Simulated scan of single mutants.
Amino acid sequence: MKVAGKVAVVTGAGGGIGAAIARKLVDEGAKVVLTDLHDDGLNAVVAELGDAAVGLGGDASAADHIAAVIALAEESFGPVGLYFANAGVGIGSELEFDDAVWDTVIDVNLRAHIRAAQQLIPGWVDRGEGYFVSTASAAGLLTQIGSAPYSVTKHAAVGFAEWLSVTYGDQGVRVSCLCPMGVNTKLLTDDASLSPTAARAVTTAGAVLEPSDVADAVLEAMDAERFLILPHPEVLDMYRHKGADYDRWIRGMRRFQKALRGD
């Protein structure tokens, strides 16, 4: 699908991958509504993009905020044709005993996608066109060492994106799922996000890309209407090895974990 002339919503767009996708969309001729929990970054990106973008701060996992963002898009530019469920959090320890942390991660990394789809898919089916892009992670295919909430919710995000594509793909709804490894964003570099072990697992597994590199991969995949977006191509080889011998892969991940911890 070509994005020129389309109206897009990008969540988590105050920086990182979300901001890079928004910039790329505007460069390609789309109109964009950006949303983020943090107003400072959001306002800066909106100002940078000019008349092609508007913003609305808020929680991307809240149904009323999603409805408000969709309404703002319709008022400003027209019906939403592209939705980028990009907002994500990496908080949480290995097993994580605080239910509030689990609730936050499940809401942002999974329920935000479900709630957006619930509001958009019926209209897209009626119009026979729409594109949902889910930002998951290579952790959703390969598991994230050091963070149970992050790994579990990213697997779930991949599963939900697959379900959307299977269920509505023949009715004009296109779906892509973004699964990068290391990207130079606050999720990777902020001490309050992924644990040190989880961050080391990411940075030692492959190259750390810039958000603009990821945005290029996203738009290229959308042009080809390809489901799986892998800015790190080696993830596909890892995924194939996992599927070829699950037990061997799990043993290898245990060894990798011990090496990261210095055991």
Results as ranks from 00 to 15, higher is better:
139 A>T: 01
211 P>T: 04
90 G>F: 10
262 G>P: 14
69 V>R: 00
184 N>E: 14
37 L>E: 13
210 E>A: 12
89 V>R: 09
67 A>N: 07
37 L>H: 11
136 A>P: 11
13 A>G: 12
262 G>C: 10
205 A>V: 01
262 G>L: 02
65 H>L: 14
64 D>S: 13
127 R>S: 15
70 I>R: 06
227 F>G: 03
4 A>H: 14
2 K>G: 15
132 F>D: 07
209 L>C: 08
213 D>V: 01
10 V>Q: 10
20 A>N: 09
132 F>Y: 15
78 G>P: 01
95 L>N: 13
230 L>D: 12
93 S>F: 01
29 G>N: 12
122 P>C: 02
82 L>T: 04
83 Y>R: 05
108 V>G: 07
223 D>R: 07
88 G>V: 00
238 M>S: 13
165 S>Y: 03
105 V>H: 05
133 V>K: 09
195 S>N: 08
177 C>I: 09
212 S>Y: 00
128 G>Q: 10
55 G>Q: 09
126 D>K: 04
212 S>V: 12
133 V>G: 13
136 A>T: 05
109 N>H: 04
100 A>C: 06
263 D>R: 08
173 V>G: 07
60 A>L: 13
160 F>N: 11
212 S>D: 15
65 H>N: 13
125 V>S: 08
159 G>K: 11
205 A>T: 11
183 V>T: 12
208 V>L: 06
61 S>Y: 05
62 A>N: 15
132 F>S: 10
101 V>F: 00
12 G>Q: 01
44 A>V: 01
127 R>L: 11
163 W>R: 09
164 L>C: 14
155 H>L: 11
28 E>G: 04
100 A>L: 10
221 A>V: 13
36 D>A: 03
226 R>S: 07
56 L>F: 01
105 V>D: 03
178 L>R: 02
115 R>A: 05
134 S>H: 10
